[in-house]
């Protein structure tokens, strides 16, 4: 990531204000603990790394003992696992999916490809750095990582959630302009998603100084109301 990009992504200082009631903190801890012990992982595979997930999910490595289960719809899922290279065409769908997931949501980038292009670095058709398009909570190294490494990564994510460190989803709202800019670079200025990210940011009270900018301005200019998809065979 360029240093200019780093400046743009800053954690909003006004995270959770410390609550005065001591019981409230206990309650928050309990919520986070429960959240970390019951996660649904979206059943969405992008690249080769997906092949390591069936063993990780089933009885041999059994991620269900950690409370992690596959889930078929984005709206009910907590974890988006990007399993390897993301072609530009897939990336569109990944972003649509990500935006539809309910917060809090966690993104894990596994395999080399999500970090710096991996073995597809010369390909015109794949995105190179996942973190340009959405905030990532955790990376797992490997090409592909073994199921053990995936489990290890998921455990780490659970720890982060318990310790209130897995808050990357907030960054998407706080730095929406940056992510939208990178998306527009790939998909053109007409790019829009059905989700009203800016509206959501307002609801979550996550409007930061970087939420709006030149790219969201373009979005607001070109944005058309979404119409139901025409189904044809």
């Amino acid at each position: 990531m360029k240093s200019t990009d780093l400046d743009r992504i800053e954690v909003n200082p006004k995270t959770m204000p410390k609550r005065t009631n001591p019981l409230a903190n206990v309650f928050d801890d309990l919520v986070r603990f429960c959240r970390s012990r019951s996660m649904f992982m979206l059943h969405y595979c992008t690249g080769c790394g997906a092949i390591e997930l069936p063993p990780a999910m089933t009885s041999r490595f059994d991620m269900e003992r950690l409370g992690i289960q596959p889930m078929v719809t984005p709206r009910q899922a907590d974890i988006l696992l990007i399993t390897g290279y993301v072609s530009i065409k897939t990336l569109k769908r990944v972003i649509l999916t990500y935006e539809q997931m309910g917060s809090p949501k966690y993104v894990i980038g596994i395999c080399s490809c999500t970090v710096n292009g991996g073995m597809y670095w010369q390909s015109y058709a794949t995105a190179k750095k996942l973190d340009e398009y959405m905030p990532v909570d955790l990376y797992i190294a490997g090409c592909m990582p073994r199921p053990e490494a995936v489990i290890e990564g998921l455990q780490q994510l659970m720890d982060k959630i318990k310790n209130d460190q897995a808050n990357s989803w907030k960054q998407y709202y706080e730095n929406y302009d940056y992510y939208l800019g990178n998306q527009q670079k790939l998909f053109g200025n007409n790019w829009q998603t059905p989700t009203d990210v800016i509206g959501e940011a307002e609801i979550y009270r996550l409007m930061g100084p970087q939420t709006l900018g030149e790219h969201t301005k373009i979005l607001q200019q070109v944005q058309k109301p979404m119409e139901p998809l025409e189904m044809k065979l």
């Binding site: 970090v115 990376y139 990582p145 490494a149 990357s168």
Partner: peptide, 14 residues
């Protein structure tokens, strides 16, 4: 050795 995980801030460890 085959396990390495990191978050966004420690991506340099790659």
């Amino acid at each position: 050795e085959y396990v390495h995980t990191c978050d966004q801030e420690h991506i340099d460890s790659y």
